[in-house]
Amino acid sequence: MPVTKPKFTRETRQKIKILLADDHRAFREGLSRILGEEEGLEIVAVAGDGEEAVRLASELQPDVAILDVAMPGLSGIEAIKHVKAKSPETAIIVLSAYDYESYVLPSMEAGASAYLLKTVGVSEIARAVRAVHDGQTVLGPTASRRLLSRIAGAGGRVLPDGASQHLHQREMEVLRLGAAGLSNREIAVKLVIGERTVQTHFRNILRKLGVSSRTEAVLRGLRAGWITLDDLP
């Protein structure tokens, strides 16, 4: 599909640039049109399969890529890995019709920052775009439970039992709420603290765990057993 590169005016530079990839033409064109009407968002390209998504991500370096997990040819999970390799700053949202455990965990491990079902509304997708662009991890309630169930069933720990001692109680609370899919603002309201304080807690969590993203921190917390189904709202 030919791609017309947008003219980058002062207005467009302030918008979040989005790449959308889905193998169902009607769905991707409809979502592209509606999502592009959201304030502060701009669809810079659409792709019909994983290989095209990787090529466009490499060429355009979008802020956010929205990918289907089940696409012909290069799978969505493999596409996530390639997109992150060619455009490391691109935050990835998986938008799928499926909430299978075999999709959720591999997607997050591959580098996705969010996993949403296609049943969510456009406004929720727009919120997720803004959230991952700000460095947050977003999991819908069903995806959160699938992820926890998969990790619990796999067993084992990737961190020593005493690793959690490096995190303060408040940091553990922030990490658990982040795993449940709450935004910085929602965490701040729930814990009655400032939003900037939440951001500081997340920076400290990443540093202490030796990871570079909230997604990695959440996955480590899940695998280490610090986060359970009981932590979900």
Rank of each mutant, 00 (worst) to 15 (best):
M71E: 03
R130G: 00
E52V: 09
T197D: 01
E195K: 13
D63Q: 05
I125R: 04
I93S: 04
S102A: 13
I205D: 00
I193S: 02
P141L: 10
I187E: 01
G225F: 03
I34E: 10
K86D: 13
V211N: 05
T119D: 11
T200Q: 10
V83D: 02
Y103M: 11
G210Y: 10
I227G: 01
G73P: 09
F8V: 13
P106F: 05
E216C: 03
V132F: 07
S58F: 00
V94W: 02
S96C: 06
D230Y: 11
L222H: 02
L167K: 06
L20D: 03
L147Y: 01
G30N: 07
E195S: 12
G40K: 02
R176W: 09
R130P: 05
R170M: 14
G30Y: 07
L219N: 03
E38M: 08
R220I: 01
G156P: 02
E173Y: 10
R130Q: 15
K15G: 04
R10D: 14
L159M: 13
E59V: 08
G73D: 09
V3T: 14
E109F: 05
I125T: 04
E11H: 07
V198P: 08
S107C: 15
L206Y: 14
V104D: 00
M108P: 06
A224F: 06
G156N: 04
F8Q: 11
T137W: 00
